[in-house]
Simulated scan of single mutants.
Amino acid sequence: MSQCLNPDCLHINPDGSQFCQKCGSKLRLAERYYAKSILGQGGFGRTFLAVDDFKPSKPPCVIKQFLPQAQGTATLEKAAQLFDQEAQRLELLGKHSQIPELLAYFTADNRQYLIQEFIEGETLQQELDNQGAFTENQIISLLKDLLPVLDFVHQNQVIHRDIKPENIIRRASDNKLVLVDFGASKQVQRTSMSVTGTVIGSAAYCAPEQAMGKPQYGSDLYSLGVTCLYLLTQVSPSNLYDPLELQWVWREHLNDNQLSEKLGKILDRLVETVFNKRYQSVAEVWEDLRRYYGKSP
Rank of each mutant, 00 (worst) to 15 (best):
F54G: 14
D84T: 09
L102Q: 12
L124F: 13
E31H: 13
A133M: 04
A108W: 04
F118N: 10
F83C: 13
G132N: 04
Y113F: 15
E86Y: 12
N137L: 06
L49I: 09
K58A: 14
K55R: 12
P68G: 00
N130P: 00
R46S: 09
D53L: 06
S97H: 12
L39N: 04
N137Y: 01
P56W: 04
S37K: 14
K95R: 15
L142S: 12
V51K: 02
Y34Q: 09
N130R: 02
A108V: 06
I99L: 11
E77V: 07
E127P: 01
L82E: 14
L102A: 08
A87E: 01
K36I: 08
V51Y: 00
C61S: 05
V62L: 09
S57L: 13
A50H: 06
A104D: 15
D129Y: 06
P56Y: 02
F44V: 02
V51S: 01
Y34T: 07
E122S: 12
L128H: 03
D84L: 02
A87M: 04
L142G: 09
Q112M: 10
F44A: 06
L142Q: 11
F106H: 10
A50C: 12
I140Q: 10
Q112S: 15
D129N: 15
L67M: 06
L92P: 13
E101H: 13
G72S: 07
F54Q: 14
R32V: 09
L93N: 13
Y34S: 14
S37I: 03
K55P: 00
Y34I: 06
F48E: 03
F54N: 14
R46H: 07
P100K: 10
E120Q: 14
G121N: 10
Q126F: 04
Q65M: 15
I119M: 07
N130S: 04
